[in-house]
Amino acid sequence: MTPYQNIEQFEFKGNAKEWFGIWITNVLLSIVTLGIYSAWAKVRTKKYFYQNTYIAGRNFDYHATPKQILIGRLIVVAGLVIFYMANAASPLAGGILSLVLFAIVPILILRSTRFNARNSSWSNVRFNFDQRTGKAYEVYLLYPILMGVTLYTTQPFWARAKNRFGINGHLLGRTRFKFDSGVGPFYLASISAVVVFAIGFAIFFALSDGPLLLGENPADDVRTIANNPQALAPIGILILSFAAARVVYDALLRNHVYGHMTLAGHAFRSTVSPLDVLVLTISNMLMVVFSLGLLLPYTQVRMHRYWTENTFVQPNGSIDAFYGEMIADSSAIGDAYSDIEGIDLGIAL
């Protein structure tokens, strides 16, 4: 029996044309309602991508209601406005609030992940997320501090801890996902990223002819660029190499993490290539910029399709055997916070 027998590929059945119509309507209604409709838009977006993503002939689904999302977003926006104002009015109050916010980030990440898991399903079975709060503090507060103390040399341990926390915390129905691996591949991913960035930085340094930009006086930089637009080229290379480093890191980790993840004996595979992802990311960005945003839906479908086509499940036994109750989760505050501030679990999926 070859190892690739019966392997199931993830599949995305949506298309850019149809998604464009939904997306532009989402944007229009969100603007007209000054952001209120964005809660409905989020649900339609998630539903479109989840419902059209299949594995083994069954699709995913998203079940949060716009009302939950809206309430979460209103609370978070109000909270952040108060936070910014307090910060402007009193550095002391702002400092205390920053510490409070910093201290509750692990809880927000936990809640956000749980909300998303409980409101997602595959083949009619809901996901769930089950991890202790103490563990969240260990992974999102203690580990980062240790990493800082060791000057980032232990970053791969943190990356592994986040993936263990995130994946081992997820369940499909009552069945838990499992992930574990040595730390070596995490070091490999981080070092590869550093090497890519170092190469880019060396080119930047050679081209920029010494400290041309980012001098002490920003006004001088502005003048330099205005007189001499090609001075931006080294900066462009710097940004590009940063993006490339990130893409290489993400792609290597994704392949590794999927390869070491199981669900009730079913194994996963990811076959993304860093070069493909880099070309996709950059061409997508250029398309969005030069179409003034109108090609964004096309680039989203393109990216999503690439992820799905490079993700596989190797079943081991029946996939009909999952079972779980629906657990209602209506507290979307963590989810809204992660939408606005862009924090997430930091796992490589």
Partner: peptide, 22 residues
């Protein structure tokens, strides 16, 4: 700038990492 920040975060949605910074 606060309003623009919230509107971009909420309406533009998932634009991908580099584009968001831009």
């Amino acid at each position: 700038s606060l309003s623009v920040y919230f509107l971009v975060a909420l309406i533009a949605g998932d634009t991908g990492p580099i584009l968001e910074d831009f």
